[in-house]
Simulated scan of single mutants.
Amino acid sequence: MMVQFLILMVTLDKLYFSPLGKFMDERDAAIKEKLSSVKDTSGEVKELEEQAAAVMRAARAEISAALNKMKKETQAELEEKLAVEKKKIEAELQEALGNLENQKEETIKSLDSQIAALSDEIVKKVLPA
């Protein structure tokens, strides 16, 4: 019985346990290799993340510069338009003031003639001829 047990153990060892152990060792080695490659690629991932961050910073700086340029151009254009409109308004104001001055002079002349006519009437009424 002991011999049969030993033969069974040797047979199981050769046919079952040795291939199973070999398979387990190979699988362990493959897992270790994958882990080491993952650790190696984590450095690459960090580099890619840093590159992406650098690209984003550059893009933000470029967009900011473009926005500032656009703001300056728009501001200059608005100031130019404002100056043109201000000149137009000032010209219209001067014209309106000139018209008012002319109307004032005409009114004063009209009043002077009316004052003279009233003075003559008052003198005629007060001093009988």
Rank of each mutant, 00 (worst) to 15 (best):
L48E: 14
E49P: 08
A65S: 14
A96Q: 02
K86H: 12
A66S: 08
M24D: 07
L111C: 07
V10T: 12
M70G: 05
M9N: 09
K69V: 08
A52K: 09
R60F: 12
E62K: 01
S64L: 05
L67T: 03
K81N: 14
L78R: 14
I89R: 13
K46G: 06
A30G: 10
P19W: 08
L48G: 07
K69L: 04
G43L: 01
E49K: 09
Q94M: 11
L20T: 13
A129G: 13
S36Q: 07
V10H: 04
A129L: 14
M9C: 13
V123K: 11
A59H: 02
A58Y: 00
E73P: 08
K32Y: 09
K81V: 11
L67A: 03
A91G: 00
A65I: 04
N102H: 14
M9P: 02
K109V: 10
Q103L: 04
K104G: 03
A58E: 04
Y16W: 14
I7D: 06
D25G: 08
E77Y: 07
I122W: 00
E90Q: 12
T74Q: 02
I31F: 15
A29G: 05
L20D: 10
N99V: 08
Y16F: 09
E33V: 07
L67N: 04
L8F: 14
Q114E: 15
K86P: 01
E95A: 05
L35K: 10
L20S: 08
E90M: 07
D120G: 01
A83E: 06
K14G: 00
S36M: 05
A76Y: 04
S37T: 15
K87I: 01
S64F: 02
A65D: 14
K71C: 01
K104L: 15
L93E: 02
E49T: 03
K34P: 02
E90R: 11
V84Q: 10
A29F: 09
D13S: 15
A30F: 15
M56F: 09
M1N: 08
D13R: 05
A52W: 03
R57W: 00
V45M: 08
K22Y: 13
K69Y: 01
K72T: 15
V126F: 13
A30R: 15
Q75H: 10
T107S: 09
F5E: 05
T41V: 12
E92I: 15
A129I: 14
L118Q: 00
L48R: 05
E49F: 03
E49A: 06
A29L: 09
M9Q: 10
L127I: 15
K71M: 01
F5Q: 06
K125E: 09
L8M: 14
I89E: 12
I108T: 12
E49G: 04
G43I: 02
